[in-house]
């Protein structure tokens, strides 16, 4: 586990499934929880527990963020790694979305940057935000991510269309 000033970041365990399940909320959709077709996935707690326990890829690439009191405050990860182009998708999901402005989220993003660029030797990190995820977008921008554009009306939920923004960070820009 990685002990920070505000957080303890560790690989996600099957026991974290109930906390992760709480993030699947159709009224507050998150880009990180959409599938390839930008459709929301609605797994049960048992399915999440099984997935977190079974997939080696998930276990090595998905992390739980705990605060100093040992409470789970969010999840983060690196996924869909393209070995050829050396880029990975970074995801950050704070249980309270407003916490994206806080020090725990900032430490988690610093962890993802370090792990992506120094540990996995990635060249580029990509992140996605729905238009409603403004706190996450601001946090990504503070960490050097830049917009690569917005896909319009790709996802329908809670009675309206949502746009999806793609942001990226290059190793040389990040100074890692």
């Amino acid at each position: 586990m990685i002990q920070g000033i505000y957080t303890c970041i560790r690989t996600t365990d099957p026991d974290d499934a109930p906390a992760l399940h709480g993030l699947y909320d159709l009224q507050r959709p998150r880009a990180a929880l959409l599938d390839m077709r930008r459709e929301p996935i609605m797994p049960t707690v048992d399915e999440l527990r099984e997935m977190l326990g079974r997939k080696e890829a998930v276990r090595g690439a998905f992390f739980t963020i705990e605060n100093r009191m040992g409470e789970i405050v969010g999840f983060c990860g690196l996924r869909s790694v393209s070995a050829e182009a050396r880029f990975a998708e970074a995801t950050l999901m704070m249980c309270k979305e407003s916490d994206c402005a806080g020090p725990e989220a900032s430490e988690a993003l610093a962890f993802l940057r370090s792990r992506g660029f120094n540990w996995l030797r990635m060249r580029k990190l990509v992140a996605h935000c729905l238009d409603r995820e403004t706190a996450l977008r601001d946090a990504l921008l503070r960490h050097g991510f830049q917009s690569e554009g917005v896909q319009r009306e790709v996802f329908y939920a809670a009675g309206r269309w949502h746009n999806l923004e793609v942001l990226s960070l290059f190793a040389e820009t990040a100074g890692e």
């Binding site: 182009a85 690569e148 554009g149 896909q151 990226s168 290059f170």
Partner: peptide
């Protein structure tokens, strides 16, 4: 409409 320009994205 060109919505995305993904820089240095493929090899």
């Amino acid at each position: 409409v060109r919505e995305l320009t993904l820089r240095d994205h493929i090899v």
